[in-house]
């Protein structure tokens, strides 16, 4: 933990153990589309700490999604290394990455990505069936305040409800990290708050390391740290003096 990104001057371990869940060094990702090289990430160095909630802030195209996808084992970098605890993710092959996602990572996406043919409960069970020490699907849904709608199919749920099912599905296996890519992007602000509250609760009650992508500065106030992306690099790391409860957020 010697190197920090340049803007991260003061005590980085605002919360949690201070141990790094992720260590990222020189992370570079170049997409080649036709004749043009697109530099999505240009040598990012960063840590995410166990138990913290980090907000990744930045305009679209700044590289935050690419960064998150690489941390989640969905994508592989062109150069650089990513360590998850003692494991070098960047050395993993496809099968090892799948196992990593299965055992350690929870994802929440902008478009929920629920399985339309499964009910809320079954969508969660989908994950608990292949996890090591999961909570019960019912418990997970209860945690996001959806205990009353477990038998509904996605088509019968509102957007906010669907997203909370997605969160329940992501946390039910007790993941070590929760990666959320604009989880409220498709929701109105009132519904968005409910979803953020669910994330907040998971982070504080289960102590799950959480990375949250948003391009909304207001929303970043609920995080321990705000990591600002621009042009494929981290331009600022800001530690919030105090986390603002989700219900007080406005955007």
């Amino acid at each position: 933990m010697t190197d920090r990104s340049k803007a991260d001057g003061d005590d980085g371990s605002a919360r949690g153990s201070g141990r790094a869940a992720f260590r990222v060094r020189g992370l570079t990702k170049v997409y080649r589309t036709g004749e043009v090289d697109v530099h999505a990430l240009r040598g990012v160095d960063l840590e995410l700490f166990e138990g913290e909630m980090a907000a990744l802030l930045g305009p679209s195209g700044s590289g935050k999604s690419t960064f998150l996808n690489i941390l989640g084992g969905l994508d592989q970098p062109t150069a650089g290394t990513v360590w998850f605890r003692d494991h070098e993710l960047t050395a993993y092959d496809e099968a090892a990455l799948t196992a990593y996602r299965r055992d350690h990572v929870g994802f929440v996406f902008q478009f929920y990505n629920l399985i339309p043919s499964l009910t809320a409960l079954e969508n969660v069970a989908l994950v608990t069936e292949i996890a090591d020490q999961p909570m019960s699907p019912f418990e997970a849904l209860n945690l996001v305040g959806l205990a009353g709608r477990i038998d509904h199919f996605p088509a019968q749920l509102s957007g906010g409800e669907q997203q909370r099912v997605a969160i329940a599905r992501a946390i039910a296996k007790r993941p070590d990290v929760l990666l959320c890519d604009e989880p409220t992007g498709a929701l109105d602000s009132k519904t968005g708050v409910v979803v953020l509250e669910a994330l907040e609760r998971v982070n504080s009650e289960l102590g799950t390391t959480t990375a949250l992508i948003t391009h909304n500065a207001g929303m970043a106030e609920m995080a321990d740290r705000v990591i600002r992306f621009a042009d494929g690099g981290v331009v600022e790391v800001h530690v919030n003096a105090a986390r603002r409860p989700a219900r007080e957020l406005v955007w």
Binding site: T98, R102, F107, N113, L114, I115, R169
Partner: peptide
Amino acid sequence: ELASLRVLGFT
């Protein structure tokens, strides 16, 4: 749907 499953850790 299938990609979502892959993300969730299905092989």
